[in-house]
Design a protein around this nucleic acid. Structure first.
Length: 646
RNA sequence: GCCCAUGUAGCUCAGCGGUAGAGCACUUCCUUGGUAAGGAAGAGGUCACGGGUUCAAGUCCCGUCAUAGGCUCCA
């Protein structure tokens, strides 16, 4: 007999060789139906794999990440099985589960698999799934594995196996298809009830651009047809919210071939929105003791040689520009920090001056490979909401806390209620690749960890993810559709103060090196606006939206009254337009609702007589009539409340 | 940069060897209206660009550029 211990601490006795599935059956038949994967003593385990020793067990269902993982992993094998039958001679790379589904990298030889082939492959997968083939695990030796896959000409698999440690290797077989795999897998393919192959793409073998490019097929699968329908619906919603689409519809920004790819042009409405965001952040930063600075768009090449950026990125970046007479070399500014370092270095600094906080909405230019450009989220010219804090080592934590406060204020004001944080620390086993003393690193790392604890921020800690110049804290927000976006970042930097030889005089009358913190709560204005558009679907908060109110006269007779009110509201700082087109009121309502205007005011004979407006709120319909003054007061209060909601 | 795909009116798209199309937007006229599309007429296109095949090319082929999905990269 063996003892099986459950996550709640309880222990039950089972016969040796019992499988997790049998354990589940002993608890309830419902659980047995739902369980799709397990872990045994921390190892991933098939539900049909016998357990021979005392063990800690966890049972996973579809709702668990581990359950989905096994489900999609088996789906990847099913995809491979279908491909094997449709494309004889096809060779397989790897086929893992990913965050949202699975993929398989394949080498179809001379055949080309196209988007239009996906339905055919899906149908084959469904046909194979319906057979409910058991997925059988087999342990074999490394030599046997190499022989088995070698005979089939599976060169990629052989390469993978030969790099594995000696000992037993597991394979999984369902139907005609056998794959090298660690598992775990579903007991049989019949659980897979709904499949959608989503896209097809090239992917380098082992992610190495020097090696062969394989065909990657992405898909997602579900245990219920309804779940697939919901997933498809969500994807359609995401498509509707695409910032590139909404940006065009709401006339926020554009790109022009004549200007160049990856170089966004902000249209009046988008520029107004961005300007409000910048004003908002400036106001907050002022409160936190920041000073605005401004620096030019180019800088002498030597500046970036000093900073080290040129050595690291120079060749793969925009090339230097030259003055015609003197042949001096300048670079388009890829970073604001070297400029800010020079500002720090311009005067003798005392420990009493610190921390110094220089902020700039600095536009930087970076060469991005053409295949990388994407709407506003990946561009070649963008504006960072940058600031560099120069402080003493003992001020690090305090400064971190303050930056976190700013970030929280922004997330709150913009209704990003769900966010996560990631702390990136250095790899302690490989300290020589980092600049700065061990003591400073330890100080900085514990400052970040403690700051997060004090703010009650649950942050994932990733060791080895730090930049060579310092540890960092990154913020990820979840938008209205649950998608994660990386936005704000706070990074400690020991490198630049060193390279620019920055100093302050301490209380001991000795020279000391300041610590620098880079931070950008939005990240970049372009990226942030893109995320904001997708989060809100273009329905921006009242304080931020470009046009707050549109007045719609019932007929031409009331145009004059409409303009008169618009004037009054604009004087009160309420951004107001008049829709005096020769259209019926229903038409005006529809068009302005589509433009996501927060307040629509209907004015006709009744309103004109009493100096009133009839109010319609975006998405909520008719709100009744009120006086113009009351409406103005209501809007002003709503804006004030939103801007001071922290 | 690499792989797959796409590029037709301002926007969304149809047409896929034989005289450039639709809806919306735009202009003009009619209509003067009460809470999500009133009516009519008109204007608008070297079918991304450059080559080729063909009696004939948005349509087939090649190249370039741009866009999209991935891969690699991201101070």
């Amino acid at each position: 007999m063996i003892n099986i211990k459950f996550p709640d601490g309880s222990v039950r006795e089972y016969a040796k060789g019992t499988t997790p599935l049998q354990v589940a059956e002993s608890i309830s038949s419902r659980l047995a139906q739902d369980v799709i994967a397990a872990s045994v003593n921390g190892l991933e385990w098939d539900v049909t794999r016998p357990i021979d020793t005392d063990a800690d067990i966890k049972l996973f269902k579809w709702d668990d990440a581990e359950g989905k993982h096994a489900f999609w992993h088996t789906s990847a094998h099913l995809l491979a099985e279908a491909l094997q039958s449709l494309y004889p001679g096809i060779k397989f790379g790897i086929g893992p589960a990913v965050e949202n589904g699975f993929y398989y990298d394949v080498d179809p030889g001379d055949a080309v698999i196209r988007d239009s082939d996906l339905p055919k492959i899906e149908a084959k997968m469904m046909e194979l799934a319906a057979k409910k083939c058991p997925v059988v695990r087999q342990d074999i030796t490394k030599e046997d594995a190499i022989k088995l896959f070698g005979e089939r000409g599976e060169e990629y698999k052989v390469e993978l196996i030969s790099e594995l440690e000696d000992g037993t290797i597991s394979t999984y077989t369902q139907g005609e298809f056998t794959d090298l795999c660690r598992g775990p897998h579903l007991p049989h393919t019949g659980n897979i009830k709904a499949i959608k192959l989503t896209s097809i793409a090239g992917a380098y073998w082992r992610g190495d651009e020097k090696r062969k490019q394989l065909t990657r097929i992405y898909g997602i699968s579900f245990p219920k047809k309804k779940m697939l329908d919901e997933y498809i619906q969500m994807m359609e919603e995401a498509k509707k919210r695409d910032h590139r689409k909404i940006g065009k519809e709401l006339e926020l920004f554009m790109f022009s071939q004549a200007v160049g790819q990856g170089l966004p042009l902000w249209l009046p409405r988008g520029a107004a929105l961005r300007e409000r965001l910048e004003m908002f952040l400036k106001r907050i930063q002022k409160r936190f003791g920041y000073q605005q600075v401004m620096t030019p768009h180019i800088g002498a090449k030597q500046l970036y040689v000093t900073s080290g950026h040129y050595a690291k990125y120079g060749k793969d970046s925009f090339q230097p520009i030259h003055t015609p007479e003197e042949n001096e070399e300048f670079l388009l500014k890829p970073m604001n920090c070297p400029h800010h370092c020079e500002i720090f270095a311009a005067f003798p600094r005392s420990y009493k001056d610190l921390p110094l906080r220089f902020a700039e909405f600095g536009t930087v230019y970076r060469y991005e490979q053409s295949g990388e450009l994407h709407g506003l989220t990946r561009v070649r010219g963008f504006t960072q909401d940058d600031a560099h804090l120069f402080c003493r080592p003992d001020q690090l934590k305090e400064e971190f806390l303050k930056v976190m406060d700013i970030i929280f204020i922004i997330f709150k004001a913009l209704n990003f209620e769900n966010f996560e944080a990631q702390i990136s620390l250095r790899d302690p086993s490989n300290t020589e690749k980092y600049i700065g003393s061990d003591e400073n690193w330890e100080k900085a790392e514990s400052a970040i960890v403690e700051a997060c604890q004090e703010k009650g921020l649950k942050a994932r800690v990733e060791t080895g993810e730090a930049a060579f110049y310092g540890p960092k804290l990154d913020f990820m927000v979840k938008d209205a559709l649950g998608r994660r976006w990386q936005l704000g970042t706070i990074q400690v930097d020991y490198n630049l103060p060193e390279r620019f030889n920055l100093e302050y005089t301490g209380a001991d009358n000795q020279k000391h090196r300041p610590v620098m913190i880079h931070r950008a709560p939005f990240g970049s204005m372009e990226r942030f606006v893109a995320v904001l558009i997708e989060h809100t679907a273009g329905k921006f908060p009242l304080w931020l939206t470009p046009d707050q109110v549109v007045i719609m006269p019932i007929s031409e007779k009331f145009n004059e009254y409409a303009h008169q009110i618009a004037n009054q509201l604009n004087m009160a700082d309420i951004r107001t337009l008049v829709d005096d087109r020769n259209e019926k009121i229903g038409r005006k309502i529809r068009d302005n609702e589509m433009k996501k205007i927060p307040y629509l005011l209907v004015v006709g004979e009744k309103e004109a007589e009493n100096n009133q407006v009839s109010v319609r709120k975006q998405g909520e319909g008719d709100q009744g009539t009120m006086s113009v003054d009351d409406f103005a007061a209501m809007v002003t209060k709503e804006v004030d409340d939103q801007m001071n909601a922290y």
